[in-house]
Amino acid sequence: MACSRLMWATRAASYLRISVPFTLRVRGFSSVLKDLKYADSHEWVKVDGISATIGITDHAQDHLGDVVYVELPEVGASMSQGSSFGAVESVKATSDIYSPVSGKVIGVNEELNSSPGLINASPYENGWIIKVEMSDKDETNKLMGSDQYSKFCEEEDAKH
């Protein structure tokens, strides 16, 4: 990930007493994956037939900072699009996670119980949060594509 490389670079530089340009803005480097769908509340969805894998985006984890706890739903719980199904806790902030699709939870990433930092280290792969069996696949049409989501993040950052 671009941002963790940057962090490493600045940290290494500080140990090595090299001066780095302080104007680097880490947040501009968040990555977005082409084949995923995105919600405006910063979750991603990977669709495979009627199953959907859900996590939070690189942009979201970057803004949250070090994730220290993930509250997961139970397998079998039902989800509706736009409603909260869990929470991500960072050192200072609590953020609800909203389901980008409706359906039933068929899997949760238990590894997050012991390693919540996977959300930071690998937001699109090992940091996935739940798998849902979708009840209405058409709902994914309401979500953003990667280009639209990148633009959405830029606009949101500019506002703040």
Binding site: H42, E43, A93
Partner: peptide
């Protein structure tokens, strides 16, 4: 994630209720 980090400043003084 609505709010996300933007809540951070607020959460310094008080955790916000959703509503």
């Amino acid at each position: 994630m609505r709010g996300g980090l933007w809540q951070l400043g607020q959460s310094m003084t008080r955790r916000l209720a959703q509503a």
